Computed example of a mutant assay.
Amino acid sequence: MDFLAAALTQGHVSVWHVMGDREHIIDYGGSVEEYSPVSIKIMGKRYFRNTFEFRVQK
């Protein structure tokens, strides 16, 4: 996913934890406030990129 595009368009991004064939939502999310190679900040909360999956809702 392109975090720059999501940040610029204020797209709604949710946070998921995926392990094998199991997945569950961690946060219903919101817009991307900041991002780096290590983490993403969504609605005041920071999530590590190597731990979670991020999905843009259309």
Results as ranks from 00 to 15, higher is better:
Trp16His: 01
Leu8Trp: 10
Phe52Leu: 00
Ser14Val: 06
Gly44Asn: 04
Gly30Asp: 03
Asp21Tyr: 03
Ile26Trp: 06
Val18Trp: 03
Val32Asn: 01
His17Ile: 10
Leu4Gln: 14
Thr9Arg: 09
Leu4Cys: 08
Gln10Ala: 14
Ala5Trp: 08
Thr51His: 08
Phe54Ala: 00
Ala7Glu: 12
Ile40Trp: 09
Leu4Asp: 13
His24Ala: 07
Ala6Glu: 05
Ile25His: 10
Gly29Lys: 04
Arg49Ala: 04
Leu4Lys: 12
Val18Lys: 03
Glu53Lys: 13
Tyr35Met: 01
Ala7Asp: 08
Ile42Glu: 04
Gly20Glu: 01
Asp27Phe: 13
Gln57Tyr: 15
Lys45Asp: 07
Tyr28His: 14
Phe54Leu: 04
His12Tyr: 03
Met1Ala: 14
Ser39Trp: 15
Leu8Ser: 11
Arg22Phe: 07
Phe48Pro: 04
Gly11Asp: 12
Phe48Val: 06
Glu23Lys: 08
His17Lys: 08
Val56His: 02
Ile26Gly: 00
Ser14Ala: 09
Ile25Thr: 10
Leu4Met: 14
Thr9Ile: 06
Glu53Gln: 11
Ser39His: 11
Pro37Ala: 13
Tyr47Pro: 04
Asn50Ala: 07
Ser39Asn: 07
Ile26Asp: 02
Gln57Leu: 12
His24Pro: 04
Phe54Trp: 04
Glu33Val: 08
Lys41Tyr: 08
Tyr28Glu: 13
Tyr47Glu: 05
Asp21Pro: 12
Ile26His: 02
Arg55Ala: 06
Ser31Cys: 12
Asp21Arg: 13
His12Glu: 07
Asp21Met: 12
Ser14Trp: 10
Ile42Val: 10
Tyr28Pro: 08
